[in-house]
């Protein structure tokens, strides 16, 4: 789920592996006991601090499953509620609410909108191709 590491980019591979492990560990803990939020939160917190320290970018899909306020892992139905709601401008929004601290995040659901990471140009392979092409 992380940024694709190129063949030449092995620099922070171990750190990425570690992030991956921590994320999985948090899921694993929650799967074993859905009430053990604290431990999952601890793992998410370490994951976040590692990525902050080493300046590693994480995929939005990962970041969106962590609460910004209390760092708990947001699993819909277990530690978070996910609702579709119409906002004032009549746009439909996804509301994700953390159950332990009450922090909400809103995401606009617009079928036309794609995150930069999901766009084909963002992939590293495509980028190098376009750069090499004209030169």
């Amino acid at each position: 789920a992380y940024n694709p590491t190129m063949a030449g980019n092995i620099k922070d591979k171990e750190a990425f592996q570690r992030l991956n492990f921590l994320y999985q560990a948090a899921h694993c803990v929650l799967a074993q006991n859905p009430e053990n939020v604290e431990l999952a939160r601890f793992y998410c917190y370490t994951q976040r601090t590692i990525s902050k320290r080493l300046v590693l970018r994480q995929d939005p899909s990962v970041k969106r499953t962590m609460c910004k306020k209390c760092y708990s892992l947001l699993v819909p139905g277990v530690t978070a509620t996910v609702r579709q709601r119409k906002s004032r401008k009549r746009e439909c929004r996804t509301l994700v609410r953390c159950l332990s601290c009450g922090q909400t995040r809103r995401f606009l659901n617009d079928p036309e909108h794609h995150l930069w990471v999901d766009q084909p140009e963002a992939q590293l392979e495509n980028q190098t191709q376009t750069e090499q092409g004209p030169s």
Binding site: N33, E35, N36, E38, L39, R41, F42, Y45, C70, Y71, S100, C101
Partner: peptide
């Protein structure tokens, strides 16, 4: 106050 990282005994 929230005991963010404290593990509960039953877990």
């Amino acid at each position: 106050e929230m005991k963010v990282f404290q593990l509960k005994e039953e877990h």
